[in-house]
């Protein structure tokens, strides 16, 4: 990676980091932290789905695993929350590898892979909802004990910075993937698996690598979620809502791009919040906006918001030349 690859990411993150200095309203910070958590989870999905072309409909499996691991390890086993969070991320990677191994080994791709991942997430949701260890349908409450050493903070700003740091780290990770051999091979698998094999790409290994990293990132988002809301249940952690969220953000923002998931998450949730404010208390109005935005993105901007911006920049450039 060169300086030019890294600079835009560092500048963007540094700028966003100043937001809590100007905005102190809890509702706004709440919204921002939530959006960053979604963005992080979506960044995870984007590594596998955007770069690798393997569309998972079950990233809740990773999000939930990260969330439950973070919560259960501290509540049931008394492990330090920071350590629990780290372990949750690793467990998410392991779950990713296992799901990947089982489905990619048997050559599942396209809609079959999507269905299998959905099934894994649903099975985990039902198990978490039933088992006593996970607290069953009542879920797990993390005890309120506000200490930085306990991964709980007085101000929401601190949480905002942690979420932002993680998003920034994954932006850098994604940029590295984009510029590496692994990334080139991953994109080759997305574009044409047979051709990739013929060129010496070990497609199984590449896909397993992608789903492992993807699982870890989305699990980190889940862990963050648990730590922020201090509560996890099966329908939150393993619910289909998160599987859908993490697909929507990259599609709207720009599939297989470094900034796509972040841009998409901010656009979706920003617009959702604004409509909620404007339309008052019409229930589900933000979901309708999501739907409309998705249709618009697929119809008019298949490369997402970033693709649209690039295209308009190019056509403006062309107009200048003419």
């Amino acid at each position: 990676m060169t300086f030019r690859d890294i600079a835009p990411i560092v500048v963007l993150i540094a700028l966003i980091a100043f937001v809590p200095a100007f905005i102190t309203a809890n509702t706004v910070l709440n919204f921002l932290v939530f959006t960053l958590i979604i963005a992080l989870a979506a960044q995870g999905w984007n590594i596998l789905g955007g770069f690798g072309g393997q569309f998972s409909f079950g990233h809740a499996a990773f999000f939930g695993t990260g969330a439950y691991a973070a919560a259960l390890l501290q509540v049931r086993l008394g492990i330090n929350p920071w350590v629990a969070f780290a372990i949750g991320t690793v467990v998410g990677a392991a779950v990713g590898w296992v799901i990947g191994y089982l489905s990619f080994r048997s050559g599942l791709r396209g809609s079959y892979f999507a269905l299998v991942t959905l099934a894994f997430a649903e099975v985990l949701r039902i198990l978490a909802n039933a088992a006593t260890f996970t607290g069953g349908a009542a879920g797990v409450l993390i005890k309120l004990d506000v200490r930085p050493g306990n991964f709980q903070f007085e101000s929401r700003g601190a949480f905002f910075w942690i979420a932002l740091a993680l998003v920034g780290a994954v932006l850098l990770l994604t940029r590295w993937i984009e510029r590496s051999r692994f990334g080139a091979q991953l994109v080759a698998v997305r574009e044409n698996e047979a051709a990739a094999k013929a060129l010496g790409v070990d497609t199984l290994r590449v896909k397993l690598g992608a789903i492992t990293v993807s699982g870890a990132v989305t699990a980190a988002a889940g862990g963050l979620y648990a730590q922020y809301f201090l509560y996890v249940d099966a329908n939150i952690a393993y619910g289909t809502w998160i599987s859908v969220e993490v697909i929507l953000a990259p599609i709207v923002g720009g599939l297989g791009t470094v900034f796509g998931p972040l841009v998409g998450a901010v656009a979706l949730h920003g617009l959702g919040e604004i409509t909620k404010l404007a339309a008052g208390s019409v229930p589900g109005i933000d979901l309708m906006v999501f739907g409309g935005l998705l249709v618009a993105a697929v119809a008019f901007a298949p490369a997402g918001i970033l693709g649209l911006m690039r295209r308009s920049a190019r056509s403006r450039g062309a107009a200048r030349h003419a």
Binding site: R179, S180, R181, A184, Q185, V187, A188, R190, E191, N192, A194, A195, A196, A198, L199, G200, V201
Partner: peptide, 30 residues
């Protein structure tokens, strides 16, 4: 190495990036 009778380009990539996928077999650095 083989070529395909029915050509199989990585359609979303540039020509150079297409060839680079092959080149990566012997060159780790981008």
């Amino acid at each position: 190495a083989r070529t395909f009778q029915i050509v199989q380009p990585f359609a979303g990539l540039s020509v150079l990036e297409n060839i680079a996928v092959g080149a990566h077999l012997r060159h780790a650095k981008r």
